[in-house]
Simulated assay, not measured.
Amino acid sequence: MTVAERPAWVDETLFPFESRFIDIDGNRIHYVDEGAGPVLLFLHGNPTWSFDYRNIIDELRRDFRCIAVDYPGFGLSSAGPGYRYRPAEHTRVVGAFVEALALRAVTLVAHDWGGPIGLATVQQHPEVFDRLVLTNTWAWPVGEPAVQIMSHVMGGPIGRLLIRQFNLFVNPMIPIGHRLNKPTSAEMAHYQMALDTPARREASAVFPREITASRAFLADVESGLPALAALPALIIWGDGDFAFGDKELRRWERALADHRTVIVDGAGHFVPSDAPEQFAAAIRDWHAAGGIVAYDAELAARVREFFADGPPVLEKAMFGGLAFLVAGRIAVAASSRGGLLVRVGAARAEQLVRTTAAEPMAMGERVMRGWVHVDGDHLRAGPALAEWIDIGIASAANA
């Protein structure tokens, strides 16, 4: 199936959205763009497509702009000649997509392979994204022997043949991955028809191999996670998943300082379609609560004045306050606690806490290594504020 327009098998009742298409780097990319408001960008995993988010989009489009994109070779998107369906390629396509649509202030919503692909996109386009929603995913090289064996078997000649000839990732895995709401035959048909020939299933067949073959890509995403740690994050976790469990959940909670976790009891791997009502409600509640940003506006204005004659800066709502990013990394932030959060680097933090008015920076009960908090009373003098901003700029440049 080479898709140039929406095919007749797409049910208007099950997928009640306008299908849009855009050409990116020789690929014909399908996406939906529904509603108005804060932007949510939905990225799918294997072997699904934007159809997996249909009920969430239908619920949230009254209050949000909901954009869901299909990677080349998935859903209603077509790959151009020479496309190899690797996660690094998908990342480049998603990056070009957000730039083509001139998206800003985006919340990434990512499941399964959408996690590493989406987070790599965030790392490469930090000016675009300001929040994260992650569900049953990962973003690091996998070392467990069982997973490596699965990758080599399912990503090898026999596994790829089974996927290509028998649609192995759709026919058994989709039902197994739904524990609360088993897909109907009509819903299953939308996953099956999207990968209706052996050639179309190549995209799905590549992903198992890439769990190990894309180790360098995953290592790069992992190394960039500290730069994203301060982004407000919502973790929606199905605790009945066959692929990701408590170990991965705890790792996300350690990695993301400003996070809220919502456990969906009994939900399987495909949480967005297995528990869409809970998923949509979690996003709505979290986004509403995060809309309250409190910080010292006068201090923020003084920081902004400093940067008027300094390096280019990007402002983002983070830490419940206002962060100032230089070259894509936070240098300082006007804190919701009052005062200033300053990036100082792990090597200097302890010394600065001992010898200055700075205190360790904490998010909840967790101390953030490489950061300090400076009370506003110690920043009244212009030179003191400038010194701390200079430290933050230098530390961001070396991060």
Rank of each mutant, 00 (worst) to 15 (best):
M368F: 11
D375Y: 02
M368G: 09
G364K: 03
F319W: 10
D375K: 13
V374P: 01
K316W: 09
D375L: 05
G328W: 12
S336I: 00
V342I: 11
G376H: 04
V332G: 01
K316N: 08
A331E: 01
A317T: 14
D377I: 02
A346S: 13
G310Q: 04
G370N: 06
A346L: 03
V374W: 01
V342P: 07
A333Y: 08
G345H: 10
V313M: 08
L322F: 04
G321H: 10
A327T: 13
S335P: 05
T355V: 14
T356S: 13
G364I: 00
A347H: 11
G364E: 02
E315W: 07
R366M: 09
G345A: 09
F319R: 05
R343I: 00
I330D: 00
D377H: 04
G364N: 07
G321F: 10
L340C: 02
V374A: 01
A333P: 05
G370Y: 08
V374H: 00
G370H: 05
L340K: 02
V367S: 00
H373W: 15
R369M: 05
V344Q: 03
A317K: 15
L314V: 13
H378F: 14
V313C: 06
A346F: 03
G376A: 12
G376W: 00
H373Y: 10
G338K: 13
A323L: 12
A349G: 10
A349Q: 15
W371F: 14
P312K: 07
M318P: 00
H373F: 06
L314I: 11
V353H: 05
P312A: 11
K316D: 04
T355S: 15
V342H: 06
S336A: 13
L352H: 08
L314T: 14
E359N: 09
M363I: 15
A346C: 01
R348Y: 09
G328D: 01
R348F: 10
L352P: 09
G345S: 05
V367K: 01
A317N: 15
M318Y: 06
T355D: 14
G320I: 07
W371K: 03
I330T: 13
L352K: 11
P312E: 10
I330P: 03
R380T: 15
V344S: 05
H373N: 03
R343A: 13
G345R: 08
L379Q: 04
V313P: 02
L341D: 06
G338N: 12
G321E: 06
A362M: 12
A349F: 06
A323Y: 09
A347V: 14
G339Q: 08
F319Q: 04
R329H: 13
G339A: 09
A362T: 08
P312R: 08
R380N: 10
L352C: 10
E359L: 12
